[in-house]
Design a protein around this nucleic acid. Structure first.
Lengths: 410, 410
DNA sequence: AGACTTAATTAAGATGATTAAATAACGACC
DNA sequence: GGTCGTTATTTAATCATCTTAATTAAGTCT
């Protein structure tokens, strides 16, 4: 549920300045661990003392800051301590996976309150499934002692092509057949009575890694997910790049050489059909869940099994080429590998080797630090962003005036 | 010569609002063809009449707007017409190519005054060559009747890896051997006494096509240049994407299949060595300038020459794969093909076919509208951006006060 | 006890936006 | 040809919000 700004991008008057300064102070307050004083906010924001004082009062009135009373003196008047009120609002995250769904509840700073992993309900229509997950989320909120009214935003992730603008799953997700044009945001919004932002799971993974994982400080990076499906989350200047049809990062479609062009092309020559877990399973003559046979494959390859070695070698090469080709296109400072296949150490080494051969100034290539939780963290971050947006809008309105009576000046 | 903001990202006070509003009015004034009235500015900016009046006076004082006196009435008071003063400042563009160098002078709206194409001086050291081009630029300014003091900014383009932040050519350019760490911006700045912004030629091409060419309105697009060198200019949300080491778009490095990985790799398997004009020339057993034999090749292919057909077919396929792979990574709404090879019609058709086979929602694939002039237009746009920046900084300072005497209020 | 320190608030002044009213200059109409 | 309404712009009054300077508050230190 995104609101497109109805106003003409903000009137440029004094009130605008006030909003900007409020955000500055709020950002300074949130970035700080524990309590702080007005003086520290003055230092951090560069604003004048009276302004910070006034803004602090405003934020305390709104409940975003908690007044902690005065602290110990440092040689002068005792400072008034305060603290960001983390419990002013909460967010929930739902990472809908093909087999497992991860849920989490956190406060506005991203501190995790509770999390839960459930089996994704099978054989359910999208709407029913989402309602079941909403129910699960409400239970989690109750368990975390969070009143539903305090839920400010929900972040949801799903595999496949997602249009964040409309909060809809537009394409078919790997293992979630039949999900076409499902208005995920709308359904969850109704069920949870909070704004919902929806995003592709790989895009969430890159957000998560950037926030809490291996990609901290890397404002230009990519997350490459190699599992049953193959996709990339692309971060440009600290923001996720979606592309024009929300298809950016669909590197599963990548063509791996001229030999794959003229054949009966569609489903037989691209990266996903060559290097997805499906292809590996077939070549390794196994079936069932990848967790059962994937480690075997890499163990066998390490132990000199000819077939296994060939499979690993060839797939690693393909993955390496993909990573290198994305790198020469985007020039990220970091490439994060994820997904069941992407987390395999031998593959990582081979990918790094290939990338370093091809790129004159190669990006670092590392494994995901958050692994399967990466999209969940990304969902949380996205939800926090939406929640802060909501808070900002709240702050725009004047607080409940407690009719301050003052002597009328002559 | 870029200045990194010394202030802490702008003090958020009333003066800040003033600056923002000045920019609003200026943008509205520049976007308009011909004269306009205050009333129109009020309508366009959403600001109040007194504010616009005051800002207009300020801009007229600074010489950015020209007062044209009052125009015809529309049933009421006659409106005061004014006009953006295009001759308030000028910009120059220099597109340094391996064989030809293009120069242009334009006003602040991008209206071309004069242009010139010269042979790139050969056998000169970088510094001498740049000084020669600066001399050429000054001549062009004189011919266009532009005083050097009115030159507000210069945009320069060069092949190879350019670091726009420092205005330096860092890598080796295709036909300009020996250009390593040449401080282009600094040299030209000294020679022309104006700020210089330097950018990679392919990045400029995408800027140019977006501004005046085939990519208008396409805020997510890529320009693929296929000539002796191969590279891409990548536009994300209306801005050129540079990547972390200014290597974004170096798709000449792209690996075209696993068969090219394990061979003695470095210079023999990537896109540029397979599909660059050098490779074509060798396969077609020719030598000299591509203009002499490239049309022959495509003509022969069209006329059924077996060898030519094979060459064209194979190269087109490689180009198509590259375009498709960039597309699935970036999801642009448009792919523009340029460069001597990229402008060949049969290649375009094949590329379009491949891209449409691979992408579920394919981008449009078109030939460059500006052809060899694309980087020049991009340079102009970049220079105009820099010039406007300079003007904005000027506007920050108070105009020469003509000591307005007024009665002191009691 | 008095002097200096640090923190926060109050007061006064400056800037620049807005609304409301005034002015300017015209067309139209009886 | 005077009144009236219309359009464009300016002037005046008001308001919001920032800043600096002064003041109050509540200590520490010698």
């Amino acid at each position: 549920m995104r609101h497109s700004g109805s106003t003409v991008e903000g009137a440029r008057d004094a009130a605008h300045v006030r909003r900007l300064n409020l955000e500055r102070v709020l950002a300074a307050a949130m970035s700080r661990e524990g309590p702080f004083t007005r003086a520290e906010l003055i230092e951090a924001t560069g604003l004048s003392a009276p302004t910070v004082g006034s803004l602090a009062i405003s934020l305390i009135r709104h409940g975003l800051l908690t007044d902690l009373g005065s602290g110990p003196s440092r040689g002068g008047r005792r400072p008034g301590h305060m603290e960001f009120n983390r419990r002013h609002g909460f967010v929930a995250a739902i990472d809908l996976g093909p087999t497992r769904t991860r849920l989490a509840v956190a406060d506005l700073t991203g501190e995790l309150l509770l999390r839960r992993v459930v089996n994704t309900p099978e054989n359910k229509q999208p709407r029913a499934l989402l309602n079941a997950l909403a129910h699960e989320t409400r239970e989690l909120l109750r368990a975390a002692d969070v009143p539903v009214s305090r839920l400010l935003a929900v972040g949801a992730g799903a595999p496949g092509a997602v249009d964040p603008a409309s909060g809809t799953i537009v394409g078919v997700a790997a293992n979630l057949r039949g999900w076409r044009h499902v208005p995920v945001a709308a359904i969850l919004h109704t069920a949870l009575d909070a704004p919902v932002v929806v995003e592709n799971d790989v895009n969430l993974a890159v957000l998560g890694e950037h926030w809490k994982g291996a990609a901290r400080e890397h404002d230009n990076c990519v997350f490459l997910s190699f599992g049953t499906g193959i996709g990339a989350g692309i971060m440009v200047n600290g923001r996720v790049h979606h592309g024009h049809h929300a298809l950016a990062g669909e590197i599963g479609l990548m063509c791996m050489g001229p030999q794959f062009v003229n054949v009966d092309f569609a489903p037989r020559g691209n990266l996903e059909t060559l290097a997805g877990l499906g292809a590996l399973r077939d070549r390794w003559h196994r079936s069932g869940d990848a967790a059962d046979w994937l480690p075997d494959l890499f163990l066998a390859a390490a132990n000199g099994d000819r077939d296994a070695h060939t499979i690993v070698e060839e797939v690693s090469t393909l993955v390496g080429i993909a990573a290198a080709n994305v790198s020469c296109t985007m020039d990220p400072s970091l490439v994060v590998l994820g997904g069941a296949l992407g987390m395999q150490e031998p593959l990582l080494l081979r990918v790094r080797q290939i990338v370093e051969r091809i790129m004159p100034v190669p990006p670092a290539v590392v494994a995901s630090a958050l692994d399967k939780d990466a999209p969940l963290w990304g969902s949380l971050l996205m939800a926090i962003g939406e929640a802060r947006e909501r808070v900002r809008r709240q702050l725009g309105r004047r607080p409940h005036h407690e009719s301050v009576h003052k002597g009328v000046s002559a």
